[in-house]
Amino acid sequence: MILARITIWITHPFPALLIRFYIGGIFVYASLHKINLPAEFSDNIASYLLLPHWIVNPMAIFLPWIELVSGVCLMAGIRVRASASIICGLLLIFTIAVIVVLIKETPIDCGCFQNVGDTVSWLTVGRDLIWLIMGLYVYKYDNLIHLDRLFMIKPEDLDKPDNL
């Protein structure tokens, strides 16, 4: 009985909507500082010592914008599944990068939000994994307030003679 109620709650689209706003908001917030200071962010990427030199600057230019665009799309309900997939992909890459850095014991700042003063730790890994699970949850259960549906034919409208 209790399990059934928990299942109903978990699979209800409302908690998924709240988590969608939360994850989208985090990505928008994380992107702003990096967009503002690309040179600092490129320093930060370089300090991970994981990427070849030629790709550091392109990543510093591109990464904040993919975070911003997918974060805004997720919050606004535009192509939610695609945005959630991108965010999950990014979180997976970030988690792997942080794990590698921790194993190699490279003492660097995370660069996740502000570029200085946020040293990487296993807590960073845990936080990213929780967000990753949240992203997958949004992909699976989110179904409320989608802006892009305003411009689409709804399945129930398909039965109306005008749309046939």
């Binding site: 230019i61 914008w65 993919i66 665009v69 799309c73 695609a82």
Partner: peptide, 16 residues
Amino acid sequence: QVPLIILLAFTISITT
């Protein structure tokens, strides 16, 4: 849709 969003972000980032 994923490649489309990536392409959009890529275009904005390079232009900006």
